[in-house]
Nucleic acid binder design. Sequence first.
DNA 1: CAACAGTTTAGAATTATTATAATGTAGATT
DNA 2: AATCTACATTATAATAATTCTAAACTGTTG
Lengths: 142, 142
Amino acid sequence: MPKNCNFIEKLREVGLRPTKQRVKMCEVLYNREKTFHFTINDLVKLLSEKMNQKISLATVYNTVHAFEKKGYLKEISIDSHKSYFDTNTSAHHHFFDEDTQELIDCDENDIDKINIKKNITGKKINSVEVLVRVASDNQTQK
Amino acid sequence: MPKNCNFIEKLREVGLRPTKQRVKMCEVLYNREKTFHFTINDLVKLLSEKMNQKISLATVYNTVHAFEKKGYLKEISIDSHKSYFDTNTSAHHHFFDEDTQELIDCDENDIDKINIKKNITGKKINSVEVLVRVASDNQTQK
DNA sequence: CAACAGTTTAGAATTATTATAATGTAGATT
DNA sequence: AATCTACATTATAATAATTCTAAACTGTTG
């Protein structure tokens, strides 16, 4: 498994011990063509079902949050009941398909740069996030 | 209390029975100069402490969600742990002050109209929301 | 390869939200 | 104004999501 070596180094870089649980998590998260959007639940299921890795919920929470704090994952909050993490940590925006509950990345050409004219004294801008909610045309709006 | 008559009518219009709990809630929510941003917790506290109205948590949840469904309140989800409601239901964007955990309305001059170039076939756009996170200049970023 | 600090784990605790079922009440009917 | 009925409110229980805890375990360092 030559790829796992990268994960081990990646984990070390961020100050996390490369345990086998964390390496498995990295495989699930980062061994992908496209960026990955998931809820904690999705991730636990994937780990246990697809990867055959029984891993404690607490560990998943702890590690996901460690990744997030270190900037290896980004949180996108849809509503009070649904929160996703995104392996694409660059500044970018999202579509959310309310029919399929699917989160879709925008690339930088999809939305013009946001121009913010107001500034709040003494405060700097940490992030600017756009969420575009879409649903099929013939459906009642949320 | 002439103002409460408005609330009673407002409630009727949306198909909600104007019970005294709901009228009190309306007073708290809509008897204001500015729009009001609150969490369920904030609202319960306000009702019990300032308005002296002991009101069941379940009722607050039910009624807030009824208002939201009817379009009298708008939900803004900050992260998995913090969700606000906004009495300003027009399309508008927000600043979120990470120091004070305060939500601030943008008016339409603060941010240029968002231009979305991508469209997803068969889907219509329900809403476009921008959240600008700010924090004091001399503080570590979230 | 021993020792230590960080990690994992199951399960308990906490918090937020929703469901339930008994009681209460607004509004229509008389 | 008394009565009725459907909808509301309430306290409490149930559920769900997340965090805490304490004991067992395991990378890492020397």
